[in-house]
Amino acid sequence: MLNNPIFLIFLSIFLGLTIGKIKIFKFKLGVSGTLFTGLILSWLSSRHLTSVPTSLINGLNSYFKFSLILFVSSIGLIAGKDIKKTFKIYGLKFILLGFIITSTGFLLIFLTSFITNFDNFHLLGLFSGALTSSPGLATALENFPNNSKIIFGYSIGYVPGVLAVIFSTYIIPVIFKNNSKKEFENFSRKDFKISEQNPYYFDFLGYSLIVILGLIIGNIKINVKIFDFSLGITGGILISSLFFGSIEKIWIFNFKFNKQILKIIQNFGLLLFLSTVGLKSGYYVINALSFDAFLLMILSFVIAMISITVGLLFGKFIFKINTLILTGSITGGMTSTPGLAAAIDSTNSEEVILGYGATYPFALIGMVIFNKILSYLFLSY
């Protein structure tokens, strides 16, 4: 059974979700527990196998790519429904905020590569870990398939990144003690509501078209001076799903997918992604734990806090965003679902979801773009 990728994937999902439910104070791993159980299972399996079978590696790679398609397409389709509305009501505020937070993390990682001796691949993974972005990790691994150092950086940086987001959600309401509930009255909750369709409706014809065109877009090579650039699976699928998600129907293709079904696909894709990532690299990651790993954890927390602080300053004093909405926007800019749960708890209000939903898709796009840029910058020197 140690050679069976399906068995190992679902075992890591089962164990990961079980561990993810354990709550310590305000923190729990949630679905991210799947990554860590995958790492442990991989490490344990490697101790009983003289060599990792090629069939197992190929199987995990296939499921990894399939998980990207499910995860990214569902995110894009959900976000695509609100993009026009966000532009119309709030202009560029949430768009800029998503890019400001992710670009701050990008610049800090890039500067760190010059002033420290950390491995660039560790830092590339740490970028996605500190900003708690699974799609960011997916983009990095597309550029460097099966790179265990990237997964190590992400794994080391993820928990400090989540802790930074959770910490900030409890600090923001304390710093800004204005009457957020009264201030929120200037915002319209109904503006963000999405009309629900038939709860069982899902057009597989339209979905297949989105995936096909996304894969074609992702494989287009763009020559830019010193390197060839392509969007890959992540970027291509994201663009395709965002575009078609913003429209309802073309000819015989219906793109008005039910949101709850998309959420299920998103969660399943994320579980597949995290488990395969862990299973592919557990032996290296666990055996690479050292004092440098501890320093990387501290670095991750610092990068996360600086990125959050910059986003907070822009959001509050330049964009004048309501405190409740801003709290959610920070978690969206950090693409952190655990952070959103903490924000709801700290503010005792679900209005924070609006800020999260408005900022998240643009932070996601930012993570894809900046991971691509970092990858090529690290290759060039």
Results as ranks from 00 to 15, higher is better:
residue 1 M to Q: 12
residue 2 L to Y: 13
residue 2 L to G: 13
residue 7 F to M: 14
residue 12 S to P: 11
residue 33 G to I: 05
residue 40 I to K: 01
residue 41 L to R: 04
residue 48 H to L: 10
residue 56 L to Y: 10
residue 61 N to D: 14
residue 62 S to T: 14
residue 62 S to Y: 14
residue 64 F to G: 11
residue 74 S to W: 04
residue 74 S to G: 07
residue 88 K to P: 08
residue 96 L to Y: 00
residue 99 F to Y: 04
residue 100 I to W: 06
residue 105 G to N: 03
residue 108 L to Q: 05
residue 113 S to R: 07
residue 118 F to I: 09
residue 119 D to N: 15
residue 125 G to N: 14
residue 129 G to D: 10
residue 129 G to S: 11
residue 137 L to A: 11
residue 143 N to R: 12
residue 143 N to A: 14
residue 151 I to M: 13
residue 153 G to W: 15
residue 161 G to A: 09
residue 164 A to F: 03
residue 168 S to H: 00
residue 171 I to H: 00
residue 175 I to Y: 03
residue 175 I to S: 03
residue 182 K to N: 11
residue 187 F to S: 07
residue 190 K to P: 03
residue 191 D to Q: 10
residue 194 I to W: 02
residue 198 N to E: 09
residue 204 F to E: 06
residue 207 Y to D: 09
residue 223 N to R: 05
residue 241 S to M: 06
residue 245 G to N: 04
residue 247 I to Y: 12
residue 250 I to Q: 05
residue 250 I to K: 08
residue 256 K to Y: 12
residue 274 L to G: 09
residue 279 L to T: 09
residue 279 L to A: 11
residue 285 V to T: 09
residue 286 I to V: 07
residue 295 L to Q: 13
residue 297 M to V: 01
residue 298 I to E: 06
residue 301 F to M: 02
residue 313 L to V: 13
residue 315 G to A: 08
residue 319 F to Y: 12
residue 328 G to E: 01
residue 330 I to G: 01
residue 332 G to W: 01
residue 338 P to K: 05
residue 340 L to K: 01
residue 353 I to D: 04
residue 354 L to A: 10
residue 371 N to D: 12
residue 379 L to S: 01
residue 379 L to N: 02
residue 379 L to C: 00
residue 381 Y to S: 13
